[in-house]
Amino acid sequence: MIEQQQNNPLHGLKLETMITELVDFYDWKILYAALRLECFHLNPSLAACIKFLKKTEWARERVENFYLYRFKRMPKATAAQFELKARERGFEDGIMPRKPQALSLEMVAQMRAKATADYESMNNSKGSSRFKKGDRPSSNAASSRAKRANPSQDPDNPWGK
């Protein structure tokens, strides 16, 4: 197990250290814009964030993924690796973390808009090929608008973007 974890930037990293590095580099506002976690928005403090993230597994995984793929800029996980939690993933020998990706509030908004548009176009193309004309099930218009307005709440969207 230790051999597998040697190539994981999260191995041995305390949550406090991770949050401190992220806040020092990005600031609370950018972290909130990128991750949409209220612990980065309402009276943000290191102690409150750590307490929330220790209690909330899905939020901690979101922060760990952000740390790995935006801050350390590690290569994207394969499908098999993606099934594992971020702390359990390893990387090939010789792959080293790179400089953090610089983000601004505008860049985060653009990335979120692009991800939403990609998600909607994927759903539109998937939906049109699944059903024959007139065979499409009726949907509640309010729930459809809610899914488009906030794709992170959509159970069909596991990425939360």
Rank of each mutant, 00 (worst) to 15 (best):
E64D: 04
A34H: 00
V63C: 04
C39M: 12
A79M: 09
R130T: 12
A115D: 08
R130E: 10
R73K: 15
S125T: 10
T116M: 01
A33L: 02
S144T: 13
E92D: 13
A48H: 09
F131G: 01
A102T: 12
K147V: 05
F82R: 15
F131M: 05
R145F: 06
K85M: 13
Q153M: 13
M107P: 00
A141H: 03
P137G: 11
M107Y: 01
P97E: 10
R145S: 11
N150A: 07
D135I: 02
Q101L: 14
K133C: 02
K29A: 04
A109Y: 01
R70F: 10
K72T: 05
E61N: 06
R36G: 07
S128N: 09
Q81I: 11
N140E: 07
Y26P: 01
A77T: 05
R36Y: 03
M107G: 02
D135G: 05
A77R: 10
S143H: 11
S125V: 05
L53Q: 04
L31Q: 01
K133R: 09
R89G: 06
K114V: 10
E57S: 14
S45D: 14
Y69I: 03
A47N: 13
G90S: 15
K99A: 15
E61D: 10
G127W: 10
M96E: 15
A48V: 06
A113E: 11
R36V: 05
E106K: 12
M96N: 11
L31G: 01
Y119F: 12
Y67L: 09
Y67S: 05
A109R: 12
K133F: 03
F131D: 04
S45M: 09
A117M: 04
R62T: 15
Y67K: 06
A113C: 03
L68D: 07
D135M: 06
P155H: 07
P97F: 06
Y69A: 01
K76F: 06
K147E: 02
F40T: 01
L68W: 04
A80R: 11
